[in-house]
């Protein structure tokens, strides 16, 4: 006999209730990067829009930065940490694979015994996590979920690679997602293009590095990318994905208040705005100028900055899009916390 399975009782809708970030204390200007590569401040700024970035010191671990960011997001959401039923950590730069760092972070923020796990989706990690959180809340397996994008990309940076040495930064950005009476996170348009797995990748695997690390032909497993190929994909293919996310949510570009793309490169952001035809009234996150590319942390960090600066306000409608190594991408329209 087939037993009848009772479905979960979730919230009607989900929304982002609070956001918080942690930026490492050490600010690294372009001049410091130039000690290792033959380039110039002007070249770095014109190619990337980056003037400074934050690099973590040894005490600013993935866990420490995450706990700090999550604490701010929970306070901003005005909930009790004990009510958190899910903790999702998106990262590619936590070097201890097991156990998932999410469990330690969940414990340290005072979340009781929530579901806790790490995900790896490159620079789309945050938007992937946001999508999972929305599902958990509307399906009924958690009332509040903390999603954290956290990176120490300085640990994966080849200081002598002229094309990427200046690009990456460290930090953590967190949001609390919870129940809502109104739709406040639109449908996610997401996917992957594994045929382009090689255009953003680690130089070698850790396994190869371990076996042949002493050999001169094996470079440290730093992140490397094919700049032109990434630029073309990010601008033109991601503009299409962003438009699909707008269409799926039934929101026009005119109705947007803010655009918070992954902070990959200022030139990508500028060209995406053109390709999307965003009106001038839309506030655009340009946190990359002082944060660098922080991969999965960049969207929540930029969201916090846009709200703190007054360029956007709570209740505004924002388009978020994450895209990166995989290649992977995820975009949706959200109501800002």
């Amino acid at each position: 006999m087939t037993a009848k399975i009772k479905p979960g009782q979730g919230a009607a809708y989900a929304r982002i209730l609070g956001v918080g970030g942690y930026r490492p204390t050490r600010v690294v200007p372009n001049e410091e990067i130039l000690q290792h590569i033959d380039s110039s401040d002007e070249w770095i700024r014109s190619r990337s829009g980056i003037a400074t970035r934050h690099w973590a010191n040894e005490d600013e671990t993935v866990a420490e930065m995450s706990v700090a960011a999550a604490g701010k997001a929970i306070a901003n959401a005005g909930i009790d940490a004990a009510e958190v039923g899910g903790v999702i950590i998106a990262t590619v730069s936590h070097f201890k694979q097991t156990p998932a760092i999410a469990t330690e972070i969940a414990h340290r923020i005072g979340a009781g015994k929530p579901a806790a796990f790490d995900i790896s989706a490159g620079c789309a990690g945050f938007t992937y996590g946001l999508t999972l959180a929305k599902g958990m809340i509307t399906e009924g397996s958690a009332r509040y979920v903390v999603v954290i994008g956290v990176e120490r990309l300085s640990d994966l940076t080849d200081l002598e690679d002229r094309a990427t040495a200046f690009l990456f930064g460290d930090g953590a950005g967190a949001v609390v997602v919870g129940p809502s009476d109104e739709p406040a996170i639109g449908p996610t348009v997401w996917g992957s293009e594994g045929d382009k797995a090689d255009i953003i990748t680690q130089t070698v695997s850790w396994e190869a590095y371990r076996e042949r690390g002493a050999a001169t032909d094996v470079r440290f497993p730093a992140i490397t990318q094919e700049g032109q190929a990434v630029f073309r994909w990010a601008v033109y293919e991601m503009a299409k994905v962003a438009q699909q996310a707008l269409d799926a949510a039934g929101v026009t570009a005119d109705q947007l208040d803010a655009f918070i793309p992954h902070q990959a490169n200022m030139r990508i952001i500028d060209s995406m705005i053109k390709a999307l035809g965003l009106p001038e009234h839309v506030a655009v996150a340009r946190d990359i100028a002082t944060a660098g590319n922080t991969s999965s942390a960049s969207i929540p960090l930029a969201m916090e900055q846009l709200l703190a600066s007054g360029q956007a306000k709570s209740g505004d409608t924002a388009l978020v899009i994450g895209f990166g190594a995989g290649l992977v991408y995820a975009a949706s329209v959200v109501t800002l916390p």
Binding site: R47, Q228, R267
Partner: peptide, 27 residues
């Protein structure tokens, strides 16, 4: 025209002249 602007030139040219210019050829 730097490497990133070159990509924009290539994409515009592809559209205008009905031609495909793969990344490997752009360089």
């Amino acid at each position: 025209v730097d490497s990133l602007s070159m990509v924009e030139v290539v994409v515009a040219a592809e559209e205008r002249f009905s031609v495909k210019i793969p990344d490997d050829d752009v360089k």
